[in-house]
Design a binder for these strands. Structure first.
Lengths: 91, 91
DNA sequence: ACAACATGCAAGCCTGGACTTGCATATACT
DNA sequence: AGTATATGCAAGTCCAGGCTTGCATGTTGT
């Protein structure tokens, strides 16, 4: 189901991660952790963030590219279209 | 926060309720329960649905009008705009 | 080769939240 | 007035999921 999508954006930390990636695409895990603490007052462990990224990835909201010992992350808003297409939000 | 919104649509039963209200606006609680069983194979108790409606209401996604012993529900997609406005989903 | 660095894996804890159960309230009908 | 109908309230159960902890793996640099 599209369950993964809605579950993915249900968590405030994950939404902050998406915000961060929109602001600066292609960050590594460590980079993300640092910036989340700085700009969003999020003090979760590296593992926690890593797990969040897995969930975002399985929802298709984040795309990943492995490069040596680094793993870089990109935002992808495509799946979100399903939401606005599902319910009318007339102007 | 806008937390209530994302929490509201995180649950599959609540999304089905929204679908149902879009399909036929102004349903009462009992009406909704019946139709959810018929069309969506959801077999939650009346109280469960009632609790879901409270959550949807607090997120502004459902509006309510009390009339005698009935309580009618309407869908409101307005709050959903916040999602598409928050993250780019370029075409 | 060895150490530092970046990430992955797995198991356990613990709170939130979905659901049920039982009773209460309020409105309509006869 | 009494009964059926439509909904509300409150307490308790139970499980998903977010987080931590500890260790393993893989990569870069000296």
């Amino acid at each position: 189901m599209d369950d993964v999508l809605y579950r993915a954006i249900a968590d405030p930390t994950r939404r902050a991660i998406l915000d961060e990636l929109v602001d600066r695409d292609g960050q590594s895990l460590f980079e993300l952790c640092g910036r989340l603490v700085m700009k969003h007052n999020i003090s979760s462990s590296r593992q926690a963030i890593s797990q969040h990224l897995e969930i975002l990835e399985s929802a298709g909201l984040v795309e990943v590219k492995r490069e040596g010992r680094y793993k870089f992350h990109w935002f992808n808003g495509e799946p979100l279209k399903a939401i606005s297409e599902r319910w009318p939000s007339k102007e």
